[in-house]
Simulated scan of single mutants.
Amino acid sequence: MAMENVDGYAQITEQTMCMCGKNAAMKTSWTKNNSGRRFLGCSFYGRLDACDYFKWVDPIVHPRYKSVINGLLRNANHKDALENKMQRNLMYHRILLAMVVMVLLVCCVI
């Protein structure tokens, strides 16, 4: 994907190859400093055989956008953590209830 600069924004005009010889993949950054910014990167990113190809597609994001995106990510992560905690608590209570029932059954049989 070759890029042309139009009014400060990168425009994708054709497919770009990374240094591996594969088509570069469009990705989105979720780091604290670049949340929501799009970039082209090696299609093997995250693997040992990936090259270091990297090129920003979007302009630098306004600091307020970064703040909003990071806040949304924190809220989503917090919600996921709460849901996981609730699931663990539910499982704990089910196990505890099963143990109580087993003890009552054993006491009633004896």
Rank of each mutant, 00 (worst) to 15 (best):
M1H: 03
M1G: 02
A2T: 08
A2D: 12
M3N: 04
M3G: 08
E4G: 06
N5C: 05
V6I: 15
D7I: 06
D7H: 11
G8S: 12
Y9M: 05
Y9S: 09
Y9A: 05
A10S: 14
Q11L: 14
Q11A: 12
Q11W: 05
I12G: 02
I12F: 01
T13R: 13
Q15A: 15
T16A: 15
M17V: 08
C18K: 07
M19H: 11
K22F: 00
A24G: 09
A25H: 12
A25N: 01
A25F: 04
M26I: 14
T28P: 00
T31D: 04
T31Y: 00
K32A: 12
K32G: 00
N33K: 03
N33M: 05
N33R: 00
N34P: 00
N34A: 06
R37N: 09
R37S: 05
R38N: 08
L40I: 03
L40N: 08
L40K: 09
L40S: 01
C42V: 13
S43L: 04
F44S: 07
F44E: 13
Y45A: 12
Y45M: 01
G46I: 01
L48A: 14
L48E: 10
D49Q: 10
D49K: 07
C51V: 07
F54S: 05
K55S: 05
W56C: 06
W56D: 06
V57S: 01
D58I: 02
I60C: 06
I60L: 02
I60E: 09
I60Y: 04
H62N: 09
P63S: 07
P63Y: 03
P63N: 03
R64A: 04
R64Q: 14
K66C: 00
K66I: 10
K66G: 13
K66V: 12
S67E: 13
I69V: 13
N70K: 10
G71R: 10
L72K: 06
L72V: 15
L72S: 04
L72I: 15
R74A: 15
N75F: 15
N75V: 09
A76P: 13
K79S: 15
A81T: 13
A81P: 02
E83S: 07
E83L: 02
E83C: 00
N84Y: 09
N84F: 02
K85A: 08
K85R: 09
M86N: 05
M86Q: 10
Q87C: 04
Q87G: 05
Q87H: 03
R88T: 07
N89E: 13
N89W: 00
M91L: 11
Y92P: 01
Y92K: 04
R94A: 02
I95N: 03
I95H: 10
I95R: 01
L96P: 00
A98Y: 06
A98T: 08
V100E: 01
V101T: 11
V101K: 10
V101F: 03
M102Q: 10
L104E: 04
V106I: 11
V106K: 07
C108N: 06
C108T: 00
